[in-house]
Amino acid sequence: MKDILKNINKAFDHRIRLGIMSALVVNEAVDFNTLKEILGVTDGNLASHIKALEKMNYITIHKQFIGRKPNTKYSANSTGIHAFKKHIEALENLIKNT
């Protein structure tokens, strides 16, 4: 059992963090408000989970201005995509073996 669980990534062991990564791996980049809309979470909640993923160096942040408004876009980097794939594979294995 321990062997199967070792690939389960702690960073993705939360609904919202998993959701953020799911949205980022299929899109080039997603901005904050779109993520908020897709996941249906509050600003503070989303920000803290994004920070956690940023700390793991799974996502890249692009800050820019649209007119005068700041706009922040997020994208999954190669480390993040790799980790996410591993996690999904581990999940699938868990399902198969239980």
Binding site: R15, L18, G19, S22, A23, V26, T34, I38, L91
Partner: peptide, 11 residues
């Protein structure tokens, strides 16, 4: 897994 799929589609 199904949640991941749905978010991928939705986004």
């Amino acid at each position: 897994i199904s949640e991941i799929k749905s978010i991928m589609n939705k986004s």
